[in-house]
């Protein structure tokens, strides 16, 4: 009895926090999304909020936009992370400094990344001025619209600055251990560089890539700070329009903001469950 319940006792405080704060918060959000707002005396329960957001063009556009930001930043980060990790995996002079540089952005808060991109990549930003000095552009409007634009490039850049090392360091760790051993073997068996990469290293990197990119996707999808700082008027990410509705002094908009947040949560949780299924399948197959 004691041994069986021991781990549960050790987990108890943590589980209490998760149940009461995390699950509790979600439940309260869900309830309020069903229009149940004692605050303004609304005791009804209905799906009006969901109906109204799914027929709202702005919401649907934001949904697509958020998916674009999440996929785009994650995909590009994966590519850059793999390329860089591949370049760093062997021993060479200055590797210590290189790895230090690589992992530098990891503890830096996202907002700082946003501030940097803001100061660098606006049409009158630092990079644009350098281009101006090099006579590549004449005036601010000649520089491409990266920040405050509806292509979201500024947001992607800021996210990539943070995501690439996050994914890359995990990948690098695998390459340096498991990867090197198999790589040497494959080389001695006559496999060329591309074959080694495609058939040996890539599968080895896959678990690290998958596990980290789920985290980056989830963060990018529900992000508020960076899109708010760097985004344009239209479209906005889901978190931004949800929070805007939440802050409306007209409290009848609250259920919609709650509904939007629930949608964000459901999408991310579904992806996590999907990933876990895939991860299990991978384990079984390898």
């Amino acid at each position: 009895m004691d041994e069986k319940s021991r781990p549960w006792l050790m987990l108890l405080p943590a589980l209490l926090i998760i149940v009461f704060l995390f699950l509790g918060g979600l439940v309260f959000c869900l309830v309020q999304s069903f229009n149940y707002q004692p605050i303004i005396g609304s005791y009804t329960v209905n799906l009006d909020a969901y109906a109204s957001i799914f027929t709202d063009k702005a919401f649907l556009l934001s949904l697509v936009y958020s998916l674009y930001i999440a996929f785009g930043s994650t995909l590009l980060s994966i590519i850059l992370a793999v390329v860089t990790a591949m370049a760093l995996r062997k021993t060479f002079i200055g590797k210590g400094l290189a790895v230090f540089t690589f992992q530098f952005p990891i503890p830096i808060p996202h907002i700082v990344s946003g501030v940097a991109i803001l100061m660098l990549f606006t049409q009158s930003g630092f990079i644009s001025r350098i281009f101006n000095m090099m006579q590549l552009v004449d005036k601010p409007s000649d520089f491409p619209e990266l920040v405050y634009s509806n292509n979201g490039v500024g947001i992607l850049l800021a996210l990539i600055w943070k995501f690439m090392p996050f994914i890359g360091i995990s990948v690098l760790a695998l390459l340096q251990t498991t990867g090197l051993a198999y790589e040497d073997q494959a080389a001695s068996l006559g496999a060329n560089a591309w074959q080694r990469f495609r058939y040996i290293l890539l599968p080895i990197m896959k678990p690290a890539i998958l596990s980290t990119s789920i985290l980056t996707f989830a963060y990018a999808f529900g992000a508020y700070e960076l899109p708010f700082l760097l985004g344009g008027v239209y479209p906005k990410t889901l978190a931004i329009i949800a929070f805007e509705k939440y802050n409306n002094v007209d409290l009848s908009y609250r259920p919609q903001s709650m509904a939007m947040s629930i949608v964000i949560t459901i999408i991310v949780v579904s992806l996590i469950l999907l990933y876990r299924k895939m991860a299990v399948k991978n384990e079984v197959s390898s």
Partner: peptide, 10 residues
Amino acid sequence: IVPLLAVAMG
């Protein structure tokens, strides 16, 4: 992992 917007609002 999950964005905590819903939790805080709720």
